[in-house]
Design a protein around this nucleic acid. Sequence first.
DNA 1: TTTCATGCAAAACATTTGCAAGTCT
DNA 2: AGACTTGCAAATGTTTTGCATGAAA
Lengths: 159, 159
Amino acid sequence: MKRAREKFQALLKRNGLKLTKQRIALLDAVYATHRHFSAEDLHRDLQKLGHSVSVATVYRSLNLLVEGGLVQGLDVGKGRVLYEHTLGHEHHDHMVCLDCGKITEFQSPEIEELQDVAARAHRFVTVSHSLKLFGYCSHCAKKHPIAEERPAPNTRSGA
Amino acid sequence: MKRAREKFQALLKRNGLKLTKQRIALLDAVYATHRHFSAEDLHRDLQKLGHSVSVATVYRSLNLLVEGGLVQGLDVGKGRVLYEHTLGHEHHDHMVCLDCGKITEFQSPEIEELQDVAARAHRFVTVSHSLKLFGYCSHCAKKHPIAEERPAPNTRSGA
DNA sequence: TTTCATGCAAAACATTTGCAAGTCT
DNA sequence: AGACTTGCAAATGTTTTGCATGAAA
C-alpha cells in the first residue's frame, strides 16, 4: 500500500530516523498480509522472502509502527500479542476463539459511543481501547457442547 | 469473606484437592484487599503477614482461583496481569491510567447487551470478555494537555 | 562524518515446571 | 498409606538491551 509507505517515511522523518532496507521490507510484509500475525510470524515471513531481518529489529520496528499508529497490537492473553496493520482498515474489535485461535472482527459504533459516555462520566481521557470477546467461534462451538449450553454470559468477564 | 472460604473449599473438594495452610492464607489475603494486585504484590503481602508462600505456589493458587471463578485476571498489557477477587463485586470493566496506573471500574449494561448482540450475529459463544479503556485518569489528564486536546478517540483502538 | 540502525548474544521479566521432600485426608 | 502440595531452582517463552559494526543522511 502506497499510503503506508508515505506515512511511514513521514513518521521516520518526523523523528529523525532512517529509512533502511530492513524497515522497508518489514513495512511491506506487514501491509502485504491481512491476517493477524505475531512478531515471530513476521520474522519468519521475512526470512522466507529472503530478507533476513533479525528478531531484535522486528521487535524494534514493530514498536515503532505501533507508536506511529501504522500498526496495532492485539493482546490475546498469556503474553501473546498479535499485530495487524491499520491503514485501509476500519476500526473494529475482536472475538478470539479459545479453541482454534481464530480472530473474528466486528464493529459496533453503539458500543464506541457508550464507551465515550462512560469515559466522560469519569472524566477519563481515552487514548485507546480494547474490547475482546473470548469464547468459541461458530465452528468450534459445535465441538464444545458445554459452551453452547452456557447461559447468557454477559455477567462473566475476563476484563 | 466467609462465602469465599466456602466456595473455595467446595472448589477444592470438587477437584480432589487439598486445603493447605498456604491456600488458606492466600485466599484470605486475596479477599482482604479490595485493590487490583499482581502475583508479585500478593507474594509480598503474604510475606509481610508472616506466611511465606513461595512464588510458585502463589501462581499455582492464583490460577486455581481464576479457574474456579473466585478471582479474575485483568491483563493490562506488557505481560502485566492484575487480579481482583470476584465475590461481592458486581461485574465491571476497567479504565487504565497510562500515567499513574490507576484502575477505574465502570459498568455499562448497555455495552454488555450490545456485546451479546454482536456475538450472536457471528454465532460466537462468549465465555468471557475484556473491555479496557487506556488513557488518563481525571487527575493525570491535567498533566497531559495533549491528551486533553485529543479529538474523539472512538476511532482509535488498542483492541 | 556524523548519526542512527543492525545483529548478536546476553539480559530481563513473568510465569511455569520437574522433582524430592513434606502435608493433608 | 496414598495422593496431593510445596519449595527450590532450572527452564520457558517472549521481548528488550548493550555494544561493536555497518548503513543512511
